[in-house]
Write a protein that binds this DNA or RNA. Structure first.
Length: 902
RNA sequence: UGGCACAUAGCUCAGCGGUAGAGCACUACCUUGACACGGUAGGGGUCCCCGGUUCGAUCCCGGGUGUGCCAACCA
């Protein structure tokens, strides 16, 4: 006898919310998702989880991609792999910095000393009070402590949501990108790269955001379409009576003009090469040189080179060894300079200085207006006596308005500037070939995502600026000596020893110095800067593996097996992670990158907080259950952007309900004696199992290619259309013992139970709650696998003991005949539940023979009392079963239905 | 301007060298003992356009068009 299972003990409807919290707790207590440190690397599956930014909230885009990872991970766990699935929190960086400033009304000053035990209350005042109260200024270390306080709350909320959606994370393996270990490993990375001569510091023009006042890397930039205008400005050619007109969108940089250039083949300007031009207003003599980079068709074909208007200016400055005339300071305003010096030569220094004085302290846009006004004044012409056109205004015509793409910081508002500052750089350019090779070594899913990496890497045009002039981040672990006059010696930085890490050079003194020597002549100064957040985030595989801290753990967890992420950060996160792994150990950081697409809103726009079109998960989890939400996420293939569609969630919830009901029904079927797979002996049962074998093969192959959506679709189709709509309906009567002998009843019950058991496991990675629920009713005890998520993934080998059917199509034929009978009933205006007194069936001779072994089940299911079946020419196999006649019994009278009885 | 991707039923999406699929929506019917969050039957598509390869193309190749992304362009 089967194990007693009383379906009546179950609630009529599945209470998903209760089950979710119950199972989450049970899984936690049982350690179902724990990584086993004792098992070997080759048995282990390591996930390099994306650490979400914890300043803010999670939306469906997060749920989407994290579910993809979880589905893959769960299937690996069921395949017996020792899964390492950590979670990180990215709290390092600007978003947290801003939030902490607001929450506590504080500002950070890296120069201040650390105040141990400092406690700052939350700022409760209104906006007015905020304006009137001066923010409390704290040291960087104290600021970081405050960041921890704020982010730990977000972390709790995030963890709760991630648990609710059933991420099978090993919550013992967590980190925050600003915690001690991450700081330690990031600083170790810095030291290692210094030792490997892959890191250097240099005083050079750097991409700079004037609002945040920090250096940037090209990966931090975005293009923004902005209005601008071409200004046509006349320059004179020294020692001639000639002149030419340049076009510029940045007339305010005229005082920083250091040269003029045109294409070498441009006949209009060839005669000027080697001569000097004279700028208007400032009357600075500047070189005129040829360059292939100048486009004869653009503007007027001849242009001014300034220090620095854009990236090309930097190239010309470097290649042509042009002088530096930096007129913008770090806040984007014009700084004081003096004309008539070597640095700022002028043929009329008095006039130049008078003009420039008006610009000092002005912003770029204010300066532009002023310069344009000056250019309208004929007195400011570059053209001296003897020049044709002497006496006209330098500005030729009105500025021509255009829209053009301008690079700016992705989090910023104003176009970036190039400002000469001292920064630390990681070498990329000389490593380009190696990086491209590493990109090919990694498997990309989908494969075409590799081209994103390849294109970006191939297009690199500078090293990676890793220093940022911010407060909240990992400090750059460097001090500099001060000479007797107090000047900083950047040439020989002092690095900490590895034992000193993690360290904050603004709070800690270098070895051989005492704190009293800080900022004193002959003493030292700490580097006030922090790392680019990607400098730390690019180490997530090493952070999880405790690189540099625990060699044996590192060997077990590095490189990782998969890196899940979305495509817009291939150029940042994926790229930098590959770069770090290569530079440190010559390895790839992971063997597979799996790329999730985006969730788009119904207008096909990316769901993002800044656009304000995000859908938050909580309501959807309540309405459609965690499994329903996961079903939605798992329905989308890797790499594919998907429009958010609530209908899919509905389908997911329906599946959950159906699994609950089907599970309940199947497990309620019982038979005397053995109902293990050995009892499966009927032809139709074996034919059904044969199809199940095909499903197991196909879904397993799909998962091997990370095609979880394909696996889900196949499993769902099989469950719905093969099991519940067909097989279950056809064998119902036999399973109830109303037809056939006890052995055939056992065969039906055994088949139903085996199919349910297998299907639950195939579904488990996608819908962990309902599958665990149904599993727990009977299978948990029966198999000894307490949790389905540790139960083995189904294999064909596991089904090998069940003999193949005589005819692989037996089940399909039964379905065909059953459908034909149903169709005939429907056409006759009767419901499919009606009893058939008699019917006559015709088919090809082969079909008549082949249907025989499964005929009784079909007739029972269709409630056929009497039938004839015979071969008829010229019916072919493809014609299927033809129902010639059907005699449907009158509607059965119900005992309690007087009307129907009459 | 270049690279990549996508273009299939009203909607969201599968599929794929052999004359089109699912779910939702729609129509008709059925409260049958797991499930009406169900079932049965059905309507609905020049598989973006034009060429080519092939016995045969929605699928492969070439060229368009449209959409999205990534990059270049910033004088």
């Amino acid at each position: 006898m089967t194990k007693p299972f009383d379906p009546a003990s179950l609630p009529p409807h599945f209470d998903a919310a209760a089950a979710e919290s119950r199972w989450d707790q049970a899984w936690s207590e049982a350690g179902v998702y724990h990584w086993d440190e004792a098992r070997s690397r080759d048995e282990t599956f390591v996930v390099d989880t994306p650490p979400p930014t914890v300043s803010g909230s999670l939306h469906m885009g997060h749920v989407f991609s994290y579910t993809h990872t979880d589905v893959i991970t769960r299937q690996r766990r069921m395949r017996g792999q020792n899964v390492f699935y950590p979670m990180g929190w990215d709290d390092n960086g600007l978003p947290t910095e801003r939030r902490v400033q607001n929450v506590f009304h504080v500002r950070c000053d890296a120069a201040l000393p650390y105040e141990p035990g400092l406690s700052i209350p939350r700022f409760t005042g209104d906006d007015k009070a905020r304006k009137e109260t001066k923010p409390r200024v704290v040291s960087r270390r104290n600021f970081i402590e405050l960041c921890h306080e704020v982010t730990s709350e977000d972390e709790k909320a995030f963890e709760a949501l991630f648990r609710r959606i059933g991420l099978s994370v090993d919550w013992r393996q967590t980190y925050a990108t600003i915690d001690d270990r991450c700081r330690h490993i990031a600083q170790l990375s810095f030291l290692d790269l210094v030792e490997k001569k892959q890191l250097y510091n240099v005083d050079a023009p750097t991409m700079w955001d004037v609002d945040f006042q920090t250096a940037l890397a090209s990966a931090d930039l975005v293009d923004v379409e902005k209005p601008g205008a071409f200004h046509h400005v006349k320059f004179a050619v020294e020692g001639t009576d000639e002149s030419f007109v340049i076009a510029t969108t940045r007339p305010e940089l005229l005082p920083a003009c250091v040269a003029v250039c045109a294409h070498p083949d441009d006949e209009r300007f060839q005669k000027y090469f080697g001569k000097r031009a004279i700028t208007p207003i400032f009357r600075a003599p500047v070189r005129i040189f040829p360059s292939e980079l100048a486009d004869p068709k653009k503007g007027t074909g001849i242009l001014m080179v300034c220090t620095f208007g854009d990236a090309t200016d930097v190239i010309w400055w470097r290649e042509q060894k042009l002088p530096t005339r930096q007129i913008l300071q770090k806040d984007g305003r014009v700084k004081p300079v003096e004309y008539g010096t070597n640095e700022f030569p002028s043929l009329d220094a008095t006039k130049a200085n008078a003009a420039f004085a008006q610009l000092v302290g002005k912003s770029v846009s204010q300066a532009q207006k002023l310069v344009v006004e000056m250019l309208r004044d004929p007195a400011n012409s570059a053209l001296g006596e003897g020049h044709a056109g002497n006496g006209e205004a330098p500005l030729q015509g009105e500025p021509i308005k255009i829209m053009h793409a301008v690079k700016q910081y992705e989090k910023g508002e104003r176009p970036l500037e190039f400002i000469t500052t001292r920064q630390w750089f990681t070498k990329l350019i000389e490593n380009q070939p190696g990086l491209l090779a590493k990109g090919r070594e990694v498997k990309w899913w989908p494969e075409y995502m590799h081209s994103r990496f390849h294109n970006w890497t191939e297009g690199l045009n500078g090293d990676w600026c890793v220093s940022r002039q911010r407060y909240f981040g990992v400090p750059i672990p460097v001090w500099y000596r001060l000479d007797a006059s107090g000047a900083v010696d950047y040439a020989a930085p002092i690095f900490p020893t590895r034992a000193q890490l993690p360290c904050d050079p603004m709070s800690d003194a270098p070895e051989g110095f005492t704190e009293s020597q800080r900022n004193q002549p002959g003493g030292f100064a700490g580097d006030p800067d922090v790392f680019d957040t990607w400098f730390t985030s690019s180490l997530t595989p090493q952070i999880s593996s405790h690189w540099g801290l625990d060699p044996s753990r590192h060997a077990k967890l590095f490189p990782a097996d998969i890196r899940p992420q979305s495509h817009e950060i291939i150029r940042t996160w994926a790229f930098y992670t590959i770069a770090k792994a290569m530079l440190h150990e010559g390895k790839v950081p992971w063997t597979n990158v799996v790329i999730s697409g985006w969730i788009l809103d119904p207008d096909r726009k990316k769901m993002s907080k800044s656009v304000g079109n995000v859908v938050t998960p909580m309501k959807l989890l309540e309405d459609y259950t965690a499994d329903g939400v996961r079903y939605w996420a798992a329905s989308a293939r890797l790499g594919t952007d998907t429009a958010f569609d609530e209908k899919v969630l509905k389908v997911g919830k329906r599946l959950v309900t159906k699994l609950f009901n089907a599970g309940k029904y199947v497990l309620a079927q019982s038979a005397e004696g053995d109902v293990s797979p050995g009892a499966i002996r009927e032809e139709i049962d074996r034919a059904f199992i044969e199809e199940l074998r095909g499903l197991v093969t196909k879904t397993t192959a799909a998962f091997d290619e990370f095609e979880y959506a394909q696996s889900l679709m196949l499993t769902e189709q099989f469950f719905w259309s093969r099991l519940t709509d067909s097989y279950l309906e056809i064998v119902k009567i036999r399973a109830r013992g109303e037809v056939g002998d006890p052995a055939s009843r056992r065969s039906a019950v055994a088949t139903l139970r085996l199919a349910l058991n297998v299907l639950l496991r195939l579904f488990a990675p996608v819908v962990p709650y309902i599958t665990e629920e149904v599993w727990s009713w009977v299978f948990a005890d029966e198999t000894g696998q307490k949790h389905i998520h540790r139960a083995p993934w189904p294999t064909v080998a596991e089904l090998a003991s069940i003999p193949a059917p005589k005819d692989a199509q037996s089940f399909q034929l039964a379905c065909d005949l059953y459908a034909s009978l149903n169709k005939k009933k429907t056409e006759s205006g009767a419901s499919t539940g009606r009893v058939v007194n008699s019917t006559s069936i015709a088919a090809s001779a082969t079909l008549v023979t082949r249907i025989a072994p499964v005929l009784s089940d079909v007739l029972a299911a269709a409630k056929v009392k009497a039938h004839t079946i015979g071969a008829r020419e010229p019916l072919a196999d493809a014609d299927g079963f033809v129902i010639d006649a059907i005699d449907i019994a009158p509607k059965e009278a119900k005992a309690d239905d007087a009307e129907a009885a009459g």
